[in-house]
Design a protein around this nucleic acid. Structure first.
Lengths: 341, 341
DNA sequence: TTGAAAGCGCTAACAT
DNA sequence: ATGTTAGCGCTTTCAA
């Protein structure tokens, strides 16, 4: 167990002051002779000395760390998000502190406060919690925050990157309607979450536009999981509900839907068309490949991180609230159609 | 932009010393009158004061953070790992610092050093890099390290949790052989990585045991991805190679294999049986569901974190190197067989 | 029960 | 080019 050296040790051994050592640590090209610098560098190396970021942070008021809060790292929606912000932070020599909120306001609050305690230079919140969120009170702590995929309480944030959920849902459902479907099931995850609210809005607009009355029996909310999609369809089927298509608020739900449909002997897409939402990697891997509303999550996450870095570095404005238009991507869970003009 | 308060501010406002405030922050039940404690607590709350973990860490020599290094957060193998260590850390009020190494020794080194700089209390390394790893030199820094799924250089770590890859591969290939398969393709990810080396060993043992000569044309290494499995099979097929089954070193590879096979019109499992490795969530989601060698990744990661916490807390021994036996799980990419005795 | 003072490892003026 | 001196926000003896 070798001793941990501090800047004072290095200074003493090299016969210089701490200030000089500090200078070479921080790579100021000014003010240190080549010779001394070399000597100090060598000593640091020989002793395996690593300057403490903690101590530095305390004086510079910069921790070099950013927090990322997501609902659940094991949900297949998040890998792209994690990697996106991770890559951007790497490029900026920043570290990432990750935690799971489980969409639980309590946990969200705990983690948010933990970010403050650890003096994170900023945090990225990728979650869908609605009203009893701690977000409104978070500004007190003066930690810049940027939101991913959460389109209300934007005013409580310093930046945001979100997909246009209303439009995405609208397009998807319009497509189904044009395809001849009338009774269109709409299934989404956590009710009250911004994305779900907006997709519901898009769904309604599409029906309205086509003069199709909304049938609440065809609408359901649960969780963003395969299980929910599976159960929901089984429920509808057992209740004898008839429907031509399903629009799901997430790809995971859509996959559950397809599985339940197939299990019940319904042909997808011949008997029932299915469109998912998100365009996660899995939507392409799964067979049949999902028709879905694609959002570029990796890039969105990267952009959110870039934004946060800009804010932290005090760079001037630029657009701080970005909305990206999703693209309806037709694959194998919708019927092929000849292009119409 | 409100002022950031420090312990000194709170002390002054409450008319007590910093020491007293420190006492209530640290919740020592000793030494603070109920009244003073109440007053201090109230003031802290009113001012939104949050003690700086950084400052505390510098004196206590404890950061309350643990680093987790994985190759790639966007690889569908890792969600379970991330969540597993995350959950354990949460329970211990620890934070997680996550980074991606891309299986690049340089990046691994950079991140490992960053962990030292940030004075992480420990790190969990979940990666498969082989020889030019920085691991051998890492012990210099006296940061406890535990390994997940990396069964060589265990002596360089303070703990480890790994699956028995030799045995897992052996079982899988033996099963295929008993199933009547003779020409068995073996595809794995990064060559030289501990897991791959061991699976290759298991593969060889199984062939040996059955007196089947090893045909190197049926063996390939690439990356742990769907793409690789897909390409590899296409390559074999275009070269006119004949084979009865495929054993893949990861589920992702196996999925690529199945896709390529199906695309080429080969029936799985009727014409070609496929067994994957890992048992990630996706192996069950994918259709056809993968027959695979399952390891409990979430639990393994959790256990690794638990181990690390024990080491950090200076708790006595217990087993510090754990090997878990994987279980061959038969699903839809192998032919049904009657049980034999 | 409370306080004073030193110290943790660093940076940042300000001198020299 | 280098050193001196204060801090930064906290914990921790040791006294009172």
């Amino acid at each position: 167990m070798q001793k941990k050296y501090s800047i004072a040790d290095i200074a003493q051994i090299c016969g210089v002051s701490k200030a000089t050592v500090s200078r070479v640590i921080n790579d100021k090209n000014e003010g240190v002779s080549k010779e001394t610098r070399r000597r100090i560098l060598k000593t640091m190396k020989d002793l395996n000395y690593r300057p403490s970021t903690l101590a530095r942070s305390i004086t510079t008021a910069r921790s070099g760390m950013v927090g990322l809060i997501i609902p659940d790292a094991s949900n297949l929606f998040y890998p792209a998000i994690i990697r996106g912000v991770g890559d951007c932070l790497d490029e900026n020599n920043y570290s990432m502190c990750l935690c799971n909120s489980d969409s639980d306001p309590k946990k969200e609050k705990t983690h948010l406060l933990s970010m403050v305690d650890h003096r994170m230079d900023g945090v990225i919140l990728c979650s869908g919690i609605s009203n009893d969120s701690f977000l409104a009170q978070f500004s007190k702590y003066n930690v810049p925050i940027v939101l991913i995929g959460r389109t209300f309480d934007l005013y409580l944030s310093d930046g945001s990157v979100t997909g246009d959920n209303v439009k995405g849902a609208l397009q998807a459902v319009q497509y189904l309607i044009q395809s001849g479907d009338r009774r269109i099931v709409y299934l989404d995850g956590t009710e009250g979450v911004s994305g779900a609210i907006q997709r519901y809005e898009g769904y309604r607009q599409a029906l309205d536009g086509a003069g199709i009355p909304l049938d609440e029996k065809l609408v359901g909310f649960g969780s963003f999981s395969i299980e929910y999609g599976f159960q929901a369809i089984n429920g509808l089927l057992s209740r004898g509900e008839k429907f031509d298509a399903v629009f799901a608020g997430s790809d995971l739900i859509a996959i559950g839907v397809v599985k339940a449909l197939q299990r019940a002997g319904k042909k997808v897409p011949q008997e029932v068309e299915v469109i998912g939402f998100d365009g996660i990697e899995l939507s392409e891997i799964f067979e049949p490949q999902l028709s879905t509303v694609v959002k570029p999550h990796y890039d969105m996450a990267r952009e959110a991180a870039r934004m946060l870095m800009a804010i932290i570095n005090g760079q001037e404005g630029g657009l701080r609230h970005i909305t990206v238009a999703p693209t309806l991507t037709l694959r194998s869970t919708t019927r092929p159609r000849s292009n119409k003009k």
